[in-house]
Amino acid sequence: MTKILTNKIFQRAVVFAIGLALLFIGLTRLLVPKTNSTELALGTKFANGILGEPENTIDVVMLGNSRIYTAICPMDLWDKHGITSYICGTPGQAVSDSVLFLEKACKIQKPKLVILGADNIFDGMGISTYYFSKLKDKVRIFQYHNRWKSLGWEDFYKKPTNDWTDTNKGFNYSTFVSAAPEKPNFMKDKGAPPKEISYVSLRCLKDIQAICASVGAKLLIVSTPNWTSWSVAKNRAMEIMCRDFKIDFVDMNLGQYDAKINWQTDTKDKGDHLNYAGATKVTDIIAEYLHKNYELPDHRKDSKFDAWHKAYESHLVMTNKKPR
């Protein structure tokens, strides 16, 4: 042992490693965004808005890709049953990123329910993406490295703060209409075998379940109406998976939770995503489902949540709706 410790090569390697670690720490501090409103990648600003919410005020955390943040409107959930919710959704969110967003959210929130969009379970992510995603989270320089292009003086001295939140609570509002093409066989292939769910997705799902258990939250998977990529095969796979994992599952493309979407008027991009008219239909069903199945408190009369009333006023202005 003494021989190794006095070895010149070993000593130099240790010095090199310490130097590298210090360099990484320094650069990470420099590159880390100094506010949670920094757009690190498309949509992350809105997802990170949850970090600016007061502690333990969000009862429902939603995770997923664009299909979820265009379909469920947290402000309408507030209006209907006083449910406080936030969507940590990003475009094409990999299920491994859903895990990371939930981890981050649960550091300051203690949600009672976590809703995961069913669509990103099928993102086909490989094992290397999974580990790289984990690595990026632990060694944050990998996540923020590209900020060298937008560094300012304040990056050298300011401490990171989470001082911003989104008044739409992560929801993407659009009234644009672009009708979907006819698809006579949509969800009609009843005999389709279940689609394969990757090992990585299942592993991430277990991670999500573990986080939920640690904060005492329940997990619900929702397949929001989707004209372009949902199928009977995916529905069957989700049913089997949710039964095996003992997770609640709501499929809004089939059966009792069918949101009766009019694909001529309720979509903004030919059936890929819903517009606000479509989102209202979905939110109505989700609001009733949550109210009926989970004991979520109504915060509308709680003065601690005055900011939500203000946010709802902004929502009314944005949507041209009249107060009830």
């Binding site: 360099l23 650069l27 690190l40 990026k136 490295h145 590209n146």
Partner: peptide, 25 residues
Amino acid sequence: RTSVRFAAYYVLIILIVVFGAYGYG
């Protein structure tokens, strides 16, 4: 010298990690 070599190794690593074109965009 060792210090010059180490500096060169650090530059190569920083080039990859910070200035590498990977991730979003």
